[in-house]
Amino acid sequence: MSHDNATQTELVVLRAGELQLVLAPGIGGSIAAFTRRWREGRNARELHWLRPATATGLANANPLDMGSFPLLPFCNRIRHGRAEFEGRNIRVPPNHPAQDAPHPLHGVAWLLPWQVESAEAAQALLTFAFEADTAWPWRFSARQQFVLQERVLKVTMSVTNEDRAAMPLGIGHHPYFPHHPGTRLASPCEAMWTADEEVMPLRLERSPAVDALNRGVELATLDLDNNFTGWQRSARIEWPADVHGPARALTLEAEPPLDYFVLYCPRGYDYFCAEPVSQCTDWLNLLPQYGRGPLGGARLAPGETLTARFTLRPEWA
């Protein structure tokens, strides 16, 4: 396995038991597919735990068409890409690959290639290095370690401040899950940031969506793109038996600092996003008004490393 910069077309395949993970390092260090492959009699079956990358998405190197991608050094949006942190100005240009959106999102690492540091049968390490520029005026490095076992995928992310000044940091991942008829989600939390038409936060409240997520809800009844606080760092997805496979479930579990949760569930779509993140939308600009509790985010001193872990645990009979 080459340790050079990954090309956009290079894929890394991990296998453990019936599970298979496909990584696209050159497309923002993304996960391209996470599947179960098994046999029923003479028939080979395949079931997707994440929305699989399309051939077009791979050809166009579009992370928005992948199964999941890393969020760093910030998650979600920064209003007009402008913020200030300890004397340094952040000026992130619009970066949405498909829309003329004024508020850049998801950081910088999802739009640049990652390196394959190592790859074995069931685990891989991807690395990323960023030189400071006007968009993000701090030098940093990052790692993603993927470990696949027969019934679980373990992901460990870390970011190190390689700069001479303290750096603000948000970290997370952006998984897309299949939304088939009857899909249910339970993700206990305490409050939701309501948002305007540009998906920017307005106020924190205990909305009906919070109660629905606490007790478990059929996703077809929701139409959301919101941040949630007081997340218990666990989300359970249940799919009924259908043409795709038998009744099944997946539990997403996270560790601190992934204390916040984003649910993107547009009505009528065949996928939804359930994202473990360490900070809410536009946290740097909202901190003076709301404080760190409702917003999250970290301050990384020079040389300091922040590590975040989450697991995807599929279940089937």
Rank of each mutant, 00 (worst) to 15 (best):
T221C: 05
T221K: 01
Y176H: 12
L202P: 04
D225F: 09
E205I: 02
H179W: 04
L252R: 06
L224P: 06
T229E: 05
V243L: 14
M200F: 11
P175I: 00
A249G: 13
S207E: 14
C189F: 01
M192L: 10
L202H: 08
A235Y: 00
A241P: 06
V159Y: 03
P168H: 06
D196M: 02
R233E: 04
W239I: 11
P178K: 12
R236W: 03
R164Q: 04
V210F: 09
G216K: 09
H180E: 13
F177S: 07
A254S: 14
D163T: 03
L213T: 09
C189D: 01
E190P: 04
Q232N: 06
P181N: 01
E205C: 08
D223P: 02
L202Q: 15
A209D: 12
A220D: 12
T156G: 01
V243C: 12
A249R: 14
P208K: 02
G170I: 02
L213F: 09
G245C: 11
T229W: 03
A209V: 12
L202F: 04
G230Q: 08
A249F: 09
R215I: 01
I237H: 04
R184W: 09
L185T: 01
H173F: 13
P188K: 03
D225T: 06
I237E: 02
R164I: 07
V210L: 05
R236I: 05
S158G: 07
E198T: 08
H174E: 03
D225H: 13
R206W: 06
V199C: 08
R215E: 10
A165E: 13
G216R: 12
I171L: 15
T221G: 00
D163Y: 10
T221Q: 08
R248S: 15
L224N: 05
P240W: 12
L185Q: 05
P201E: 00
V243R: 15
S187I: 00
E162P: 00
V217H: 12
H173Q: 09
N161I: 00
Q232I: 01
T251A: 03
E238A: 13
L169I: 00
F177Y: 15
S234F: 05
L250N: 14
A247V: 03
E253N: 13
K154E: 15
P188H: 07
R215D: 07
H174S: 03
Q232E: 15
P175N: 02
A212L: 13
S187R: 07
